[in-house]
Design a protein around this nucleic acid. Sequence first.
DNA 1: CTAATTCATTAGGCGCGCCTAAATATGGCG
DNA 2: CGCCATATTTAGGCGCGCCTAATGAATTAG
Lengths: 229, 229
Amino acid sequence: MPPSRQRNANTESVDNYLKAILALSGPEEQRVSSTSLADRLGVAPASVTNMLQKLASSLLPLVEYERHRGVLLSAAGKRRALEVLRHHRLIETFLYEVLDYPLEEVHEEAERLEHFISERFEERIAVKLGHPKFDPHGHCIPAMDGKMPKQISVPLTDLREQGTFVVDSVSDQDALLLRRLRAHGITPGARLQVASRPPDDFVLRTSGVSKALHLSRDLAAAVRIRSAH
Amino acid sequence: MPPSRQRNANTESVDNYLKAILALSGPEEQRVSSTSLADRLGVAPASVTNMLQKLASSLLPLVEYERHRGVLLSAAGKRRALEVLRHHRLIETFLYEVLDYPLEEVHEEAERLEHFISERFEERIAVKLGHPKFDPHGHCIPAMDGKMPKQISVPLTDLREQGTFVVDSVSDQDALLLRRLRAHGITPGARLQVASRPPDDFVLRTSGVSKALHLSRDLAAAVRIRSAH
DNA sequence: CTAATTCATTAGGCGCGCCTAAATATGGCG
DNA sequence: CGCCATATTTAGGCGCGCCTAATGAATTAG
Ligand SMILES: [Mn+2]
Ligand SMILES: [Mn+2]
Ligand SMILES: [Mn+2]
Ligand SMILES: [Mn+2]
């Protein structure tokens, strides 16, 4: 009755470490420190060290790890991290499109389910959704082969000039921020006119709303934009 | 990032014990022995004793347990078992109806996911499916309040007279059996004509198939029937 | 270039859910 | 009734993933 799980000796915890390393190492694939991982995962640094040693010394090592110099995903580790990320974002899209979840609730559910769905489930929802390329936050969904195009967007808080832009994506990490952004019409694809001198102040105009909008730093940090070309 | 899970201090393992006790105690709610649980769950008898003691001695005991006399669900335990069973059967229905799973694959996936979906997910798929009363095996889905009507069907192997019947439900426990039953047209709702003297021999005729069909005992044991009224 | 600070690892321990081997109840039978 | 086979529980241990406290390495400041 209790199903096997543990597909590849990959446990929920292992998957979460891999995903965190992927996210923290960034597009440049820089080494990730134990503390930053500990912060992100909400565990003690000692626990991280422990896990990294295990991941590095298994038969098929999932990370490259050197004492005191941080950690990097191995090829196998990156493959798995992208697989889980694909699950996550497909599930988010599915919850949003098919099950009518409010945007700010999809992340938490996906964070759990991503570890437990089968390859069949992944494939079936991908078909149902027409093999989507983006999740409802505007994040790119890795393809089956692990390929994922680089983001061309920048954080709103990195902006240095005024202008008109398009909301590329919003962070999925904080449901409350997300709800406030949505209330202000800031959702992926929305047109955004920045009318103040960033990055100290964010006075915005969104399409359809005449009143100017002053964005707190918290909220601005959760938004990525690209040119309105 | 790692979500809380452990909704009610109920772990995947605990849920599986509760479901197994529910299934084994039957409609009469008889006490369940350690060995039968160990068999069903695929664990050692000692592990069962261990778990039962824990379940019985928590603040809100999930079972009533007396050394050497087996175990019964408490009110709270039964509530939780039915909740998980509802998840299981709703998920099966969802996989079958919405994601076009083959019947014999829904059980394994549901067995995993039942422990990890949220109340919101449960509610959303129930709505999507129009609050179904039966899963694709023909099993009754417990209602939100835990109510579940008694089954009026009997195992095909309990049959003592010939006659024409309707397939009430098929067992979800063995994918291979299930596939063979389906290949023979034996699915919930199918009309079934029993032309031999049960329970030694099962020669059947199903609607639309002219050739008589001899069912092995394995297969017959996986089928429940009711009168064709 | 040493000293202080910060970061990371080691040491020791805990709860969970499982295991095997060794007791110990229980229930049926002679 | 007492003995035996079987069912069940106890005892002792293991891997996982986490924790705290103590130690050690690296980096920065003086
Ligand atoms: Mn997310
Ligand atoms: Mn996760
Ligand atoms: Mn099932
Ligand atoms: Mn299960």
